[in-house]
Nucleic acid binder design. Structure first.
Lengths: 340, 340
DNA sequence: CTTGGCACTCTGTCCGTGCGAGTGCCAGCC
DNA sequence: GGCTGGCACTCGCACGGACAGAGTGCCAAG
């Protein structure tokens, strides 16, 4: 029906105007700023229907309309065209990310870039360890019975753990231990590292068995557990930009949720690399984020997802623009990490 | 003079009351809440003098007085007794920090602890690399002409760099390189690593010289430069606690300054481990922080300062409490890192 | 030097009013 | 049947005056 079509057009116009001006939008302004081809009175009728369907609402009688979470949802699902990045933005991405010297640097640049492109809070997850494979294990003695074990993964990540040995060890034992560990674990995915431990213990010479057991158990325990996944957050200053207008109470619960990295990590765990995932307002299970929206996507090469990244902002955000930016950055970071 | 004495007592009372209530404090309330032994009228006279001397000011005619930066400064320098931590707080420090598994974990716990104890934004600097010494260098081949160099310091810090070799290298060369680097740099302080490069080049076999030169230069360049020093920040949600009251405009400039880690790092560079350094309002060179105060101290063992930590908050903060917390945490972290 | 009293000066708040924006509804038109 | 112009109605908000309360500075007396 032409009716429904136009009604959706009205919704799109409302979302766009509200996002850019932050004022509830009325029928008259709508008719003026968009070529809808109908009079304000007609728009009013459409708006009444949209309100009844729950897509928009008015803050108080006699103010303009504001999109609801449901309205944004419809907008994101059916009304927003993919907004291609400007070439200036593409160049900015390359300029920003090239020349990074290590993983920490890559992720730090990524989060700053994303915050700058979207003018929102940006979040980047460290590559998930359990999907990485062991490239090399290094054992360094730091005290008579204390060893530092350093793990280097094929994603370029370096992890360290201090292990207290039950017995004193000498230099020869350290070298043997290093050789044994590398032989057993090199090329093994961390998620499967646990399976290798029995074999390793069988082949270990008797006098090293206790040491090997302690070290390998600690390794598997602490590294396979995804609890240690890390997060880089940037652009929190963007939260304070339209503060009072965007976040009714304070922005405190949001800052708290961001520091409580567990919350964000859980949300990140659902991403995949092929589609940009948008969560709007109340759709976020976590209460502190019920006034915010998240735009997330996975990054990594086609066959292997490494982690997630995205932005957090007010529900009143530029969804098409942010989705495009998040996707573009994820692609670039995926390539960057895949080739190293 | 008994006069001056009492006048300072009045200033102390004003600071204390204002910090705890956040309301400009008047002569009458002051006489009621503190045993100054004089009437409000007398206090008014003292307050007039204090105002003339620039220690307090009134937001508008006929409101109470509020301490100025200068007033806080006097309070901190001469009027605040060291407030010992409660035993509950001491226990909290131990419980919080014990059981950390690596450096990252220690610093993460430290920043959370400090934010929780002081209810301010906490900042912890990573141990400065240039004061550390090399414990071990590991070289891993990640592509035909690309190497990953991992540095392990005696402070338990692990740093990595990707180095592109001018020529393709084989496994034997990697092993030789590793041996050479460790021989040359083991035990050497990073700040002095540059001096060892000529020696290293002399002793290197001819066929490795190009490779050794590239790797060692990159190492020295990127690791000795203090620019890469890192910062852990936590408790930003505390900024939003009394927001409107504490920070006149918005808190945005402060969030920006915190993300602009360079600013904070510069401030941190001045700390030493023996005294707690307090910077109040305008005393901060950086404009964005002119409405905020910093309480910082260095941590590390007696003979070697590793880095700084501290808190950032409104000028209206509990200086004695925050100074005590910062000092106590720094001591504990210093011990923790010294023994590992 | 301290104290009580007093006049004065503000700010924040409350209330009443007017204005403007925006709506919903209705009758007429295509 | 859907669109349009007109019109009455409802609110929120900004403006302005009155008022109470807090706090001060000053002065004369103890």
């Amino acid at each position: 029906m032409a009716h429904d079509e136009r009604r959706l057009e009205v919704l799109r116009a409302i979302v766009q105007d509200f996002v850019s001006t932050n004022d509830p939008v009325g029928s008259k302004a709508l008719a003026e700023r968009h070529d809808l081809g109908v009079s304000p009175a007609t728009i009013r009728n459409d708006m009444a229907v949209l309100e009844e369907q729950g897509y928009i609402t008015q803050p108080h009688t006699s103010a303009g309309r504001v999109p609801t979470d449901k309205g944004y949802r419809l907008f994101v699902d059916r009304l927003s065209a993919v907004k291609p990045l400007s070439s200036a933005e593409r160049r900015a991405i390359e300029r920003f990310l090239d020349g990074a010297v290590d993983l920490h640097d890559v992720l730090g640049r990524t989060v700053r870039l994303l915050a700058q492109l979207t003018r929102q809070v940006a979040v980047v997850q460290y590559p998930t360890l359990s999907r990485s494979a062991v490239r090399h294990l290094e054992v360094v003695q730091v005290a008579a019975s204390r060893l530092l074990v350093v793990l280097i993964t094929d994603t370029g990540r370096v992890e360290q753990r201090v292990v207290d040995s039950p017995v004193e060890v000498d230099a020869g034992a350290v070298a043997d231990l290093r050789a044994l560990l590398n032989q057993a674990f090199a090329g093994v995915k961390l998620a499967e590292a646990g399976d290798k431990v029995p074999d390793l213990l069988d082949t270990a010479p008797a006098h090293l068995r206790g040491l090997v057991a302690t070290v390998s158990t600690t390794l598997v325990e602490t590294l396979v557990e995804p609890s240690e996944d890390r997060l880089v957050i940037g652009g929190t200053a963007n939260l304070a930009r339209g503060s009072a207008l965007d976040f009714p109470g304070t922005m405190r619960p949001i800052l708290e949720a961001l520091e409580e990295q567990v919350v964000v990590l859980r949300l990140m765990s659902e991403v995949d690399a092929s589609t940009v995932l948008v969560r709007i307002g109340e759709e976020n299970a976590h209460e502190a984020l019920s006034g915010a929206s998240l735009v997330t996507v996975g990054y990594g090469s086609a066959d292997r997802s490494l982690g997630g990244l995205g932005v957090v902002g007010p529900t009143r955000m530029d969804y098409p623009g942010n989705m495009a930016a998040v996707r573009a950055v994820a692609r670039y970071v995926g390539h960057l990490l895949a080739e190293s």
